[in-house]
């Protein structure tokens, strides 16, 4: 079993911590992981990409080959489009937040961006920001997105939940609860 994830967002959105949550959960479930990310200059408000590979055997390339991603988890819809060539033609799914981050002058019409996602064979679009706000923590939009993709991952829900609890453990009970709710609300959006 191999499962390849591209996490795409904009610097500051917390995509790298989501990568850690999923990786930790996968390890709890007995899988091997390889995570790759780029630090430094690109983190300053630019496009941020993390690669996460899960497998029950040894993982080689630190990055996901083009055409081999099972999941593109996009924290912003334009960033989802950027990684379409990485999606596997037969099984790749895009799970994308709907809210654009317009920090560039040539950001396309949001409707056309979302329409492009809807043209893909398999996609989920979710108002991660709105759901996180309603859950009591606007900063938990990234965890809403994990919830929205939870049933696609080769990881038991319980492992994801405890990985989320662990990463927020130091921030106190209120933050843990808000993130649990964010995860669940993301999960139930797609009837799971």
């Amino acid at each position: 079993m191999n499962y390849n994830i591209i996490l795409a967002g904009v610097g500051g959105q917390g995509s790298l911590s989501v990568s850690v949550v999923i990786a930790n959960a996968a390890m709890k479930a007995g899988l091997q992981v390889k995570q790759s990310e780029v630090h430094g200059m690109s983190q300053r408000g630019g496009e941020v990409l993390a690669n996460l590979r899960l497998s029950d055997s040894q993982i080689q390339s630190p990055t996901v080959p083009r055409g081999m991603a099972d999941l593109v988890l996009a924290f912003e819809p334009l960033e989802a489009l950027r990684y379409i060539p990485w999606l596997n033609k037969e099984r790749g799914v895009v799970v994308s937040a709907s809210q654009p981050i317009r920090n560039i002058v040539d950001y396309p019409e949001i409707d056309s961006v979302l329409a492009e996602i809807r043209h893909l064979p398999r996609f989920r679009i979710i108002d991660a920001d709105g759901i996180a706000k309603a859950a009591g923590n606007p900063r938990a939009a990234n965890i809403v997105l994990v919830g929205a993709a939870a049933d696609l991952l080769p990881i038991p829900i319980s492992a994801l939940e405890s990985a989320i609890d662990e990463i927020f453990a130091r921030k106190g009970e209120a933050v843990i609860q808000a993130n649990r709710k964010a995860f669940n609300d993301g999960k139930t959006q797609f009837g799971k």
Binding site: R44, G45, L87, P108
Partner: peptide
């Protein structure tokens, strides 16, 4: 590996910028 066709609209780059 086989790939899906890229997006039908231009996907502009998002260079880093000041916080």
């Amino acid at each position: 590996h086989e790939e899906l066709p890229p997006a039908g609209i231009k996907v502009p780059g998002r260079p880093p910028q000041f916080c």
